[in-house]
Design a protein around this nucleic acid. Sequence first.
DNA 1: GCCTGTGAATCCATTCACAGCT
DNA 2: AGCTGTGAATGGATTCACAGGC
Lengths: 221, 221
Amino acid sequence: MTKDSKIPNSTIERLAFYSRPLEALLKDGPPIISSEKLAGLCGVNAAQVRKDLAYFGEFGVRGVGYEIKALLREIKRILGTDRKWTLCIVGIGNLGISLVENENFRKRGYVFVAAFDSDARKVGTRLPCGLTVEHEGNIGKVVKALEIKIGVITTPARAAQRVAGILSKAGIKAILNFAPIQVRTPERCIIENVDFSVRLENLVYHLERLYKGENTRKKQT
Amino acid sequence: MTKDSKIPNSTIERLAFYSRPLEALLKDGPPIISSEKLAGLCGVNAAQVRKDLAYFGEFGVRGVGYEIKALLREIKRILGTDRKWTLCIVGIGNLGISLVENENFRKRGYVFVAAFDSDARKVGTRLPCGLTVEHEGNIGKVVKALEIKIGVITTPARAAQRVAGILSKAGIKAILNFAPIQVRTPERCIIENVDFSVRLENLVYHLERLYKGENTRKKQT
DNA sequence: GCCTGTGAATCCATTCACAGCT
DNA sequence: AGCTGTGAATGGATTCACAGGC
């Protein structure tokens, strides 16, 4: 945190982004990378990479480049992914299961420690990852007991707003919402909405323009 | 398409976004809405709403507002969601299944008509939605036969780039990629990457700042 | 010579503020 | 009076271009 001047939101988005190819290079690649190369791998501008990183310190060496291992460590520290985060999930449908079973999350330090559903038939079920589904009514108690900071919502749209309220009241400070509805919370709580069909509609829009000869360009996420 | 002056990418993102509350209002709500109200429901600025819509025509009536039904129809026409789109999916894990079974997609006109996997044990399986999993080797043939335009990738990261190539070669023009890797295609093909853990890392970053008293604000997507 | 870090310039997006219609 | 449509103003983010260090 060398520069305290406003850090663009999009810089943070990209930081997570840069770490993907870096992780891959860690195994089988050179120990050092230039902003040009990294930019190429991520499909962005090289100056962008340098500026993004420079917000947080001087991680590179002029005339040389960035040491991959050290850079990755810095990025993880900045993003807060150098430590474990405990999550809970509400709504155990297909999507919910795919998330709790997702190896990528675990590898990055995100561990699901509780799973909830409102459907009595699902409560008590043992998931492959070892978690047992609990009833929604227990959210408050469990979240406090396990000091869970992040909640993931994978319920149907109609339940999402209600669940967000419950999570917020239980002390959850950050919510990742997959229900196709814009969730708002009263309390001071950060929400990130992930709506697949919005992405798909975007794609379709650009697809139609493509056929009309316009040179609509799309890039990332 | 009244104004042909460059339409911001973010306008398109929001269009899909506006349609969510509008759909809800269609059932039980007034027939007309003001930019102010719609903006409130979506958590954006009212001028933004008006400007976004004005790119495509004059859908409102001054002194009155926007007729919800007509507005929704226009938005769907703009986004290309007023017709059916056939999709295929590659990678039948938990996530893949949750997508093909997703009711929201079907409701919006996105229909999965083929499912592929490279795992011989999965090939031949009948999914709840009625589709039978086919081998990856058939992608070329099936995509052409069914004239599929959009491909969804839900394979592990290591397979994603290869699969994107196969899809592109088969004639697919748009890809929605869920594998945690930045996929690039050689051919003229639109890609939209959806990486859950990027979203999560974002959330964690802002969560940490929150505790340090900084007033970091987050909103949509 | 090579590559980073960064002010300045450019580009894009959002918001303001008001003219214009109903 | 009320609310849209839009030029002008503001605010951010990206890219350029080069000074500075290896």
